[in-house]
Design a protein around this nucleic acid. Structure first.
Lengths: 237, 237
DNA sequence: CGATATGTTGAAGTTAATCAAATCTTGTGG
DNA sequence: CCACAAGATTTGATTAACTTCAACATATCG
């Protein structure tokens, strides 16, 4: 691998909570030992039940983790983007991937770090395990949020909550959200059908809450979206 | 605190993945430094947004973790029982409880371990952080399961899946499940109404899938329950 | 450009929530 | 031990939300 890739890897890894405290030469050692993989889109990274011997870091692009329901539809557990990692828990615990992983945006670059390597790091490095604890905790809290999101009673509430959780969607601005996934995938990750998603967006647009144009959505009335995200009805009148 | 309580605490703690590798005297030190609290039922343990300075281990009884929706209903994130721990992630990461905790069974005994203490253990003990990583990973994978469960499209599927995940509900036996929570709480944790839960159970009983008597439910036809848990329809005819 | 997948819209059908009321449990004080 | 109150559970009728099915429109990519 060319050396410039190595430096690129190092700088990506440094952003990770796992490795933030690692000393320079240690980090270089990690970077030297991992694989950088470049993917087409969409392309599988691994499948549910595959043996899991590595965990992964997104360097560019995006990955969705999902399960297949018996009827063939996907239940998206999580979407991951640049600077996020996945499969640590499976790696350290059960050795089998509990979900499928598929890239969602070209070009997607993933860094693969072997379990062997990770375990050695944890053995040799006092701070390492602690850093992992922090990072896993964060994931755990994220999933709690996600359960909250999924269990919100109605579709519009789930969508509103999702939009407001996206970065840069503060209550005061009029941010434009650029969807990083297809609406089909977005729908799947909210456990609704693409049709329902389309209808909600259409209604919000008619009501002047948002402006929707392909994958870019501008929030015109964040306050009312907040109301919706609290589980209120859309049209009191 | 009387010494027999201390030994009792020690033996509970030893069962935890966190402490399994701890040396005898270390474990004794932990046990000496934590609080044993006995609760009425139902009684709050802590509230969402309270500052979080400890994590907790269930020694007896049960605890539910939940959020309150704007309409006042509960979304149960998790039910915990003897030998399980909770709030580590919040403790180590954000210092604020992200959920409410309430006891569900009398008598409930909880062991409270301060963050100060935990952090010291992690500093002084090489294996400790690694053990925490393992335990957090498990929780993470559990939540993935739970998301799967919650996002199953219909209520009957969710319930079937829930029953089959309970210990001792193998496909071959005719196990009797003793519900550890009220049906109201069970319904809440599956994101359905008590009415719907009641109707499903009634239907399954009429169809000979189960035998339901108060809080004890005997599975008569596990195979068919499995079918339901895969998202099939109950009555093809 | 043409093929394939994604997105939109309408109509009809289902599922589960809601509302209301009766019945059953459980814990408590007399 | 019994009567009672409070909460849990069950049942029925109604309604709202969402899915499904079908048809069409629009993007995207080789």
């Amino acid at each position: 691998m060319p050396p410039e890739s190595r430096t690129a890897i190092t700088s990506t890894l440094r952003e990770l909570p796992h490795f933030r405290l690692l000393k320079r030469d240690m980090l270089d050692a990690v970077a030297a030992a991992c694989n950088l993989r470049v993917y087409e889109t969409p392309q599988p990274v691994f499948f549910e039940k595959d043996p899991c011997r590595s965990f992964w870091v997104v360097r560019a692009g995006g990955v969705k983790l999902f399960r297949l329901r018996p009827d063939g539809r996907e239940q998206v557990i999580n979407h991951l983007h640049s600077g996020q990692s996945f499969a640590e828990a499976a790696l350290l615990n059960i050795g089998v991937y509990p979900v499928n992983a598929m890239t969602t945006e070209p070009p997607t670059e993933l860094i693969e770090i072997s379990g062997e390597h990770l375990r050695r790091l944890m053995r040799e490095n006092d701070g390492m395990a602690a850093a992992m604890v922090g990072s896993l905790s964060m994931k755990l809290l994220d999933l709690v949020q996600r359960i909250d999101e999924l269990s919100a009673s109605n579709a519009a509430t789930r969508l509103a909550r999702h939009f407001l959780r996206l970065p840069g969607a503060g209550p005061s601005d009029r941010p434009t959200i650029e969807l990083s996934v297809t609406k089909k995938d977005l729908a799947a990750s909210l456990s609704i059908t693409p049709e329902t998603l389309s209808r909600i967006l259409r209604k919000w647009q008619d009501d002047g809450l948002i402006e929707s144009n392909g994958r870019s959505i501008t929030i015109l009335d964040a306050a009312q979206l907040m109301q919706l995200s609290d589980g209120e009805d859309g049209t009191p009148v």
